[in-house]
């Protein structure tokens, strides 16, 4: 079974991105497939490699990058939302890519489930 995940909020201000990460990691550990995670609205801030949280806090962006490396998850950042918020190819963390909203619609069409995390 394939899960798509939609993340609508940035890191740190809302729990949404933490909840989405724990859901995705658990699903992958249980053997489900999470082929793609889509970042929309302020969720595009998850993709910034410029964030430098204190050492005793989690690094949300790096954590996504590692999940993608470990399991081959496609981390897609919405181009329109990213351009509004200054997230460009130059600031993307590892394994993130920028693409269109069509990638979100495809998740709905092709995968068995779509789970949204937001505010």
């Amino acid at each position: 079974m394939q899960f798509g995940i939609l993340v609508n909020e940035g890191p740190y201000s809302h729990q949404a991105s933490d909840s989405a990460y724990l859901f995705a990691r658990t699903a992958l550990e249980k053997g489900y497939k999470v082929p793609r995670i889509f970042f929309y609205h302020d969720g595009v801030y998850n993709a910034s490699r410029l964030a430098t949280p204190p050492q005793d806090d989690r690094n949300v962006g790096a954590r996504w990058s590692k999940l993608a490396a470990d399991y081959g998850v496609d981390l897609v950042v919405c181009v329109a939302a990213a351009q509004r918020r200054g997230i460009t190819d130059g600031v993307l963390g590892d394994n993130f890519r920028i693409s269109g909203l069509g990638q979100l619609v495809e998740m709905g069409i092709q995968y068995d489930r779509l789970v949204t995390f937001g505010d």
């Binding site: 929309y40 909203l101 069509g102």
Partner: peptide
């Protein structure tokens, strides 16, 4: 909040997928 506007953008894209 921006949700209404950016939500509408998703709807317009979805229209092109014949769903």
């Amino acid at each position: 909040t921006v949700y209404a506007l950016e939500g509408l953008e998703v709807v317009l894209i979805t229209a092109a997928f014949d769903q």
